[in-house]
Design a protein around this nucleic acid. Structure first.
Lengths: 223, 223
DNA sequence: GGAATTTAGTGCGAAATGGTACAAAAAAAG
DNA sequence: CTTTTTTTGTACCATTTCGCACTAAATTCC
C-alpha cells in the first residue's frame, strides 16, 4: 500500500529546486539535529581521536544526538566513521579542485595547495589533527578492506591531481626539459604526507612552511 | 642479610662478560618468558593494531604472558606501548646508523636506507604495517605529550641523519653547487613518510621502489 | 628439608563499550 | 480529536576491558 502513496495535487512538483533545504514537510516528529552539522562534528572527533579511541558516548556528546538517534541516522560506528571519511575527502577534493582549476603558474598553484593543506592539518581546538587519510584511516586500512580501498583511492587521486598540474606546467614551459611530471607529483604528494605527519606532532607552522618552500624550489628546479 | 651475600669461591666472578645473558642466578621461580622476546611480540602487535585497538588480552596471547605477568614486567598498557616504541626506535636507529656509518657514495647510501625502510614497513604476517612513528604513535601524539615528544624526536633525528649524509656528500662534491643539504634531507624524510603511508595501504613494493628511485634522482639532480 | 623469594595462573570486580528495546513526545493526516 | 508516523530519550543488556588480589608453583639459600 505504499506503492503509489497518493499523487499530491498541490504544491511541490518533483522538480522545483530539488537540492535546496526545501523539505517537503516530513511526517513525524521533527529531527532535533541537522545531519550535515552532526556529521561534521563526528568527523572532527574521529580526526582527533581515531576510530577505536572514539566511543559512541563521545560521538553522542559531540553531535548532540543520543546513541539511538546516531544509529538511526548513520548506522553503526564503522558506518559513521566511513561516512565521516567520505565527507572529509569530499571537502578536500572540492578545495583542491578549486585551486587546480585556475590557470595560474605552477608555483602559485603549489603554494596555494600546500597552504590549504596546512590550514586543514593545523586546525583543531585541542591541537592540530593532521590528515584523516594519513593518520586515522591509514591505521584502520590494515584491518578493513573497505577503508583501505578508500585510502588507496585518496592516495592515487592526490598523485593524479599533482601529475595533471605538473604535466600542464611542462607543456607551458614552466618546467625543465628533463623534468618528469609523474615523479614530481609523487614528491609533491610526499611533501603533503610529511607535513601531515609533522603537523600532528605539533611542529609549528613556520617550520612546515619552510619545508614546503624548500620542496617547491627543488621541484621547480630553482625556477 | 643480603648485603655481603657470600663470596662464591667458585664460578661467576662479578665481572665476567657482564652484559651477556649470564644471569647471576635469580632467586625465586624462574620466568617462563624472555623479556626481550616478549617485548618484540608486543611491538609487533602494537604496530598492526595501534594503541587503543590492542587489548591486554591480545597482548597476553601474543607474548604468551598472562596479564599479571605483563603488568609486573612492563607496567600498564601505556608503559608497555612506550617501551615498545622505544624498542622500535632503537632498532631503526641502529639500522640507519650502520648504513650511514659506511663511506659509500650518497646514492648508494640512500638506496640502502630506503630499502631497509621498505623491509621494515612491508613486513608483517597480516599485511604490511608501515612505520610506528608515522602511523600509531602519530595518532597518539595528539593526546599524549610523552608520546608526542618521542615522535618529535624521531622526526628530527631522521632529518638530522639525512642532513648529515647530504652535507658530507656535498663536501665530497657529489651534489650540485647550489644544493641545500637541509632541504634535501627534508625531502628524503618526506619520501620515507610517504612510503610508510603507502605501504600501510598495501601499495605493492614495486611501486614504492619506483617512487624511491624517482625521488633519489631528483634529489641528486640526475647525477 | 624448611624458609625465603620470585614468578605463574586463576579469577574477580568495577567500569566502559556497542548496540537495542521500549515508551514518551511531537508533528502531519484524516 | 484520533490515528499514523517519525524521532527522542531513558534504560537496559551482553560483552569487553583494565587492573589487581590472591593462591599455587618453582627455585635458591640456609
Amino acid at each position: 500500500m505504499v506503492q503509489k502513496k497518493k499523487g499530491p495535487p498541490n504544491g511541490d512538483p518533483p522538480h522545483k529546486k530539488e537540492a535546496a533545504a526545501a523539505e517537503p514537510k516530513r511526517r513525524g516528529r521533527p529531527r532535533a539535529y541537522e545531519p550535515e552539522v552532526a556529521l561534521g562534528k563526528a568527523l572532527d572527533l574521529f580526526r582527533t581521536t581515531g576510530f577505536a579511541a572514539t566511543s559512541l558516548d563521545d560521538l553522542s556528546a559531540a553531535t548532540g544526538m543520543n546513541r539511538p538517534s546516531l544509529y538511526g541516522a548513520f548506522g553503526d560506528k564503522r558506518e559513521l566513521y566511513i561516512k565521516s571519511y567520505q565527507r572529509y575527502r569530499d571537502n578536500a577534493r572540492a578545495l583542491m579542485g578549486d585551486i587546480f582549476r585556475n590557470d595560474w603558474p605552477v608555483r602559485r598553484q603549489l603554494e596555494q595547495i600546500f597552504a590549504s593543506a596546512l590550514d586543514i592539518y593545523l586546525s583543531g581546538e585541542e591541537g592540530p589533527r593532521g590528515c584523516f587519510t594519513v593518520m586515522t584511516a591509514g591505521s584502520e586500512a590494515v584491518a578493513d578492506p573497505d577503508i583501505r580501498a578508500m585510502v588507496q583511492n585518496a592516495l592515487t587521486e592526490l598523485d593524479k591531481a599533482f601529475g595533471h598540474c605538473f604535466r600542464r606546467a611542462k607543456e607551458k614551459g614552466e618546467l625543465a626539459e628533463n623534468a618528469d611530471p609523474a615523479v614530481l607529483a609523487q614528491l609533491a604528494s610526499a611533501t603533503i604526507h610529511s607535513i601531515a605527519v609533522r603537523a600532528r606532532a605539533r611542529v609549528p607552522r613556520k617550520e612546515l612552511e619552510a619545508i614546503v618552500a624548500g620542496a617547491i624550489d627543488v621541484m621547480l628546479g630553482g625556477k
